[in-house]
Amino acid sequence: MNIASNTPRVAPWTAWFAHGVIAFMVVPTLLVVPISFNGDQYLSFPPRDFSLRWYEDFWSNDQWLHSAWISLVTALAVMAIATVLGTLAAIALHRMTGVGKKVLLALMMSPLMVPTVVLALALYFFFARLQMVGTWSAVVLGQVILAVPFAVLNVHASLQGYPATLERAASSLGAGPVTTFLRITMPIIRPGILSGALFAFMVSFDEFIIALFLAGPGETTLPVRMWQTMQLYISPTIAAVSSMITGVTVAVFIASHALRRRATRRRFAERQPSASKATKGKGRTLVRNSGGWPGSGKLMSKEV
């Protein structure tokens, strides 16, 4: 598929405007990268000489490394919990109909609409009651609330084309509900689950407000540590950290895209050329070309 050929013709100024918007969205983030390789003491652009000292600063600093570790573990925990909850919720939603479904879906999406500060504040009071403020679990649970909508949306989308009769077919063939879920439903909606999981991971990995409100001094996540560092002075180490986080994010999304492409290819694999060829009465050539189906040529050329 050629993307360029699918682009409709547009007036030149529209194209320039679009390019401008895209540049505005991307360039500030990308500027951080050259800054992080700057040899200077201060954040400056353009960089005057190339150096890896700020990366070295990060990797040799226990506090930074600890925060990175906390962020990673937190994101993994959030991902696991949000994916399981989101998948189950999406399947339940898929089976529902009518008003109940719409209301429930809206409720599940509400964390996307409520300002995160409000949510963080509410959680602060809530966890204060439970004496959980300053604990790692509080951060995880709080971020799960933000991550679940992404898992629900992704799984729900992948269930759209899923025929309900597949589960009936599986049960008629002797599979109980659990086997049916593990062997039929799960593999089919796996791309949705995976991208939901990646979204959940990213939501947690760069989440700042909830972590700031709920984390204790021992559980400072990477974004919170960056913010704290910036309170003191703006060290170019921050640029290095930012570049690495951006790198991880991009890598994760490329990976998820690749995964989905692979899944789609397998499921909606192009029809064998046989289908069209055979109807034109070229059954014999077909069998020779594709090889390996001895004896099936006759049937193929008649049928299809």
Partner: peptide, 13 residues
């Protein structure tokens, strides 16, 4: 019991 559906319901994966 064996069942055949109008939409075939083969497992696509």
């Amino acid at each position: 019991i064996g069942m055949v559906f109008q939409d075939y319901s083969l497992f696509p994966h």
